[in-house]
Structure formats: structure tokens, C-alpha cells
Design a protein around this nucleic acid. Structure first.
Lengths: 234, 234
DNA sequence: TGATATTTGTGCGTATGTATC
DNA sequence: AGATACATACGCACAAATATC
């Protein structure tokens, strides 16, 4: 064991603490300063140990907050009838939502094309973060034709569920017509929302949901945390 | 194109929202608390983003009220017949006035010289703030010969317009004879009135208005907010 | 007018990220 | 590997100005 470096030893010790349940999933590790005292080494050495575990996806650090134990990835099923809540419940996680922005505005060219509207038509803009067990899973941004669903904005304010809000506006069912998937790097703001670092990989999806007559009702864009989500087509 | 830091990214995002017309001139931005929710960052971070834009003159904050999109500099025409209200109306802004001081006193040496009076002659002192769309544009301070216009002080109390008050006192028309222009730093008091910071640049003007016989009737001094006004000679 | 809530301004302390010596 | 310094970011608390009823 003479070849083992100081930082590797510390890294292994922390790993054992996690494996033994001393530090559980999502919990906060002692601060770097505390670890410095505990192991009697320089802060750089502690940081190297933590960085090694963070690279493996075992730890996650947040500037100004602390270092945390990461969760294992969640499997997200991409069937033709995608329902966020149901999806996460199947994965054994408790779903929740945080609305960042909810307003009615004019559609961009891209949005108008996706919803088959005239450019500049009014749309409801619904934007927020999806959580599983209080951990951010994805950023979502959906637009709906305001003309077809005049009361949707208010319904979304109350309902906290797109499916239920649309049902309140008279839409019984909707299915996923098309989806584009890409991988992008997280912007600082995206990274912050998802508790990641800028540049971390995201799964970017663009999808159109249609009603029973194949008329588009929703154009949704999502950014999943690449480290915490695996998309599953089946 | 996300820049390095969080605050810079947020700053750029807000700038884009302004450029795209999402936030228009003079309109109120979401509160800091709302931006905190939307961007998911600490309030200090939001404030740093806003401060960066405020330093550029793009935003302006008012304690207890909110943060607003600043107007581009108002063009103030310095013709030979300057009328404040008309001037701002031409610039598409609603003019108003707030009188800070209205009294009759003895003229200083400088004032007596400008009005061609004997030193110590009585003058009406008229001082206040000019607004465009409720935004302070300039501080003004005018003196008039009290001997020639005995009722002017009362007229100014009622009229809220120098042109109309002078007309009530028998003066049909007056024109600008001379103007001196300088740039000075705002004193704390001036800055407070103009919603600026002490040391911010001001355009200081001194002008003499004369009647049809070239006899001085008004000696006016103004301090325009350098950030909000561009003087235009034509 | 006055009481209360909202919003911005400010300060202090703490934590992580990065760079240099 | 150690020591120091600075930048970025978070958390909390309170003051001051404004808005609202």
C-alpha cells in the first residue's frame, strides 16, 4: 500500500463511508474545511479526493453550498403516451414540479411551425423544473395554442399537471407524434437549475403532442440531466 | 454563447429579453424575488446581474418600487425658442414639473449681471425638477426681475408653465439669447433629485432669455441628467 | 391618515472554484 | 503538497423606500 497516494486513501475512505451508509444518498458531506481538519491534510488534497469521486458521478459539489452524495440514474420511458408523473412513479420516485415561468405570448417561428399556427399567434408558455424525490430531473418548456385553450394558463396555475389541465380545457387524450433528441452542454443557468456544472451533458428533446385527430396541441422542449436520467424507448 | 459566470449569463438573458421586446422601455422588470425563482439562483447573484445592466444605463432601480428598463436618452432641442413642455412632447414623452422652491429675494452679482439689473435688485426665484413620463430629466432654477413682473410669483404658483405665467404678466414672447454649457459631477442632493448616483455626469446649462427688445427677462440654470438627455442644437 | 406588505439596499458570514507562489 | 489570495455564489438578517389598502 506504499504506492497509494494520500488523496486516494482519503477518497477510498469517503467511499466506504458512503457504502456503509454513513453518508446517504442526497446528504451533505462535511465541508472541505472540516475534512481538512479530520484528515490533517491541505485543502488541495481533500479537493482532489472529492474531485475523483465527483468525476465518477458519486459526489456532486455546489459552489457556495457544499458537497453532496449523488443519486443513481433514473430510467425515463419514452412511449407514445408520455406522462411525467406516472413515469417517475414507475421508477419508484416521487414526482413534483416547480413552475419558473407561466405566461401568454406570441409564438416564435419555430413554435408556430410545430403547432401549425400562423406566425405570431398567441401561445401559453409553461416553463419549469421536474423533480424526482426533490432532485431536479429535467427542465421543461411547453407552448400551447392560446386560441384553442383560452383557459389553460389559469388551469396550469392550479393543476400542476399538464394532463389534468388539458383535460379541464376539454382535451381527453393526447399522444406523442414526434420527438427530436440531441445532446447539449448545460448553460450556467441550466446547470444551476439542475444542480450540475456548466458544460455538463444534457439530453435535449423536442416533441410535438397531438390530439385524436393528429392536430398538434403541445410543443415541448426538455433538458434532462445526462447524469441522472436514461431515456428508454420501448 | 453563455459566458463564464452565472451572473453574466443572467445579465445577457435579461438583455436579450429587452432587445426582443419582451421587456419594453420604461416597463417594470420582474421583482428580484421572481428572478431568483426563475433563474434559481441567490438574490445576490440576480442583483449582480441587474447592477451590471444598471451601470450600463440599461436598467434603473428604485428602492421599494422595482427595477425598470431605462429610456434611451431624450433628445432635447436647444433652439432659440426653448419650451420645455413642447420639447418633451415632441420627444414622445409626457412632461411634468415639481416645484421645489418659489420665492422672491435679492439677486446675486451673477444674476444681476445676466439680467442687466442693479446688484441687490429683487428677483423671483423659481426652482424645481422637470419630468418626462414621471422620470426626472433635469433640475431647473430660474430668476426673473421682480420689478418688471410683480405678479409672476403667484402666476407661477398656479400656472405650472413659465411661458403661460409670463404671458399672464404681459410678456408675449421670449427667445434664448445666449447659452453656456458645461459638464459637472452631480452633488448628492442633485443625484437624489434626479435618481442618480453622486458623481454621475450632468449637463449644466446657463441661459438668458430676452424679450422682443433684447431685454433680459429670465436667467435660467439647468442640470440635465447626462445619462437621460442629449442636447440637440439645430 | 395610518398600518401593513412589498421591494430594493446593505452587511456579514460561509463555501466552493481558481490561480499563483 | 502546502500556503495564500481572490472571485463567485449562497444564506440570513435587517434597514430604507415604496406600494397598497
Amino acid at each position: 500500500m506504499s504506492s497509494a497516494t494520500l488523496w486516494k486513501t482519503i477518497s477510498d475512505t469517503i467511499l466506504e463511508d458512503i457504502a456503509s451508509g454513513h453518508f446517504s444518498e442526497g446528504s451533505k458531506l462535511p465541508t472541505e474545511a472540516e475534512l481538512v481538519r479530520r484528515f490533517g491534510v491541505n485543502r488541495h488534497t481533500v479537493r482532489k479526493s472529492l474531485a475523483a469521486l465527483a468525476d465518477k458521478g458519486i459526489l456532486r459539489s455546489r459552489r457556495g453550498s457544499g458537497v453532496y452524495v449523488a443519486h443513481p440514474p433514473t430510467v425515463y420511458n419514452m412511449s407514445d403516451r408520455v406522462r411525467f408523473s406516472q413515469n417517475l412513479a414507475e421508477a419508484g420516485r416521487t414526482p413534483s414540479r416547480k413552475v419558473l415561468n407561466l405566461l401568454t405570448r406570441k409564438a416564435s417561428r419555430e413554435e408556430a411551425a410545430a403547432l401549425q399556427l400562423t406566425p405570431g399567434a398567441a401561445v401559453h408558455h409553461y416553463e419549469g423544473i421536474s423533480f424526482g424525490d426533490s432532485e431536479p430531473i429535467a427542465l421543461f418548456q411547453s407552448v400551447f395554442c392560446a386560441n384553442r385553450f383560452p383557459q389553460l394558463a389559469k388551469a396550469l396555475e392550479i393543476q400542476n399537471s399538464v394532463t389534468r389541465a388539458l383535460k379541464n380545457c376539454g382535451l381527453k387524450d393526447y399522444t406523442r407524434a414526434s420527438t427530436q433528441i440531441a445532446a447539449v452542454a448545460a448553460t450556467p443557468v441550466q446547470a444551476n437549475h439542475l444542480l450540475l456544472k456548466p458544460g455538463d451533458p444534457l439530453i435535449a428533446t423536442k416533441s410535438v403532442n397531438v390530439d385524436e385527430h393528429d392536430i398538434p396541441v403541445e410543443y415541448g422542449r426538455s433538458h434532462f440531466s445526462g447524469a441522472r436520467v436514461t431515456l428508454n424507448y420501448s
